[in-house]
Design a protein around this nucleic acid. Sequence first.
DNA 1: TGCAGATACTTAGACGTCAAAGTATCTGCA
DNA 2: TGCAGATACTTTGACGTCTAAGTATCTGCA
Lengths: 164, 164
Amino acid sequence: MNADPIALAEAHWVDHGWGEAAPGMRLVTTITRVQQLLHQSIDELLRPDLTFARYEILMLLVFSKRGALPMSVIGSRLQVHAASVTSAVDRLERDGYVTRERGEGDRRQVLARITSAGRRRALAATEILNQEVFEDVGLPAAAAGRLTTSLDRMREHRGETLDA
Amino acid sequence: MNADPIALAEAHWVDHGWGEAAPGMRLVTTITRVQQLLHQSIDELLRPDLTFARYEILMLLVFSKRGALPMSVIGSRLQVHAASVTSAVDRLERDGYVTRERGEGDRRQVLARITSAGRRRALAATEILNQEVFEDVGLPAAAAGRLTTSLDRMREHRGETLDA
DNA sequence: TGCAGATACTTAGACGTCAAAGTATCTGCA
DNA sequence: TGCAGATACTTTGACGTCTAAGTATCTGCA
């Protein structure tokens, strides 16, 4: 018996004469489901003061040379809209992990600067995520590498530039 | 030059002595990004009256024998919380794609039943998604199949039962 | 020099997701 | 028989995402 709803959907696709699209439908749905599962685990590990979105911003700032980046750069690195960055930085600021500054040259810019509390929190979060999620994704290293490569191809196919 | 922020993050991971977790971090982040891209494309194709979440519910109902399912079954098939089902069905009902009924035997249950308008809309949406997304995911069929298999392994690793 | 258009960010509102709490109904056991 | 606890759904509220619209600042060109 196959009780997996996604595999069942694929079979229905074939039955309806959509065989050409069936594997793609299954792949897309499966990606969605895996992302859901990862997102839930990660957010639970980061609660209550961080989420994956805010963690990603913090790590971007940790890796930046000056510990600060314009909002627009954060948005383009993470591929999310400016409004999402605004709201995430609002909350990081509320919790004292980040401060806002006006741009020196261009006064329209807003820089998010990580605080020392932000750095400490980001490193503690990394330790947990490395141990609980990243070090064992459920696949042998080689398979994980091939998976990443295939997914990168999909990113390119949907318009992202990876610049090898 | 490598301008991909995800590949850069992986390099930073290695530099910080987190080499063991680096490939996993990259994989998880890449899955997130691909899902973001797919989600955006799909929701744009379904606008303004559907989203991927609502489309998935509609297709579940299309494939159901009686054209109706309890809210709880919808939630467990799609692996989302009851509250998410409630809000999606609210909107499907608002647009006339679904009606609500009380369960016959168990009066606590609520069944969502697809309407004929809902069926028509679901099939039209499928045609568009098949053509614009599912039939060409950017990978050869064999690679797509391997990808799905690996992702299924990740689903199992994170606690989903696939019952081969 | 000055203004039109572009750019950087924020605000407002819709939607999806989750957690927690509330309501109605069912079930099992004393 | 009746009540305590379980179950099915809804409601409320926090958060992330997007689009659209608003504000401040900059830039280019007449």
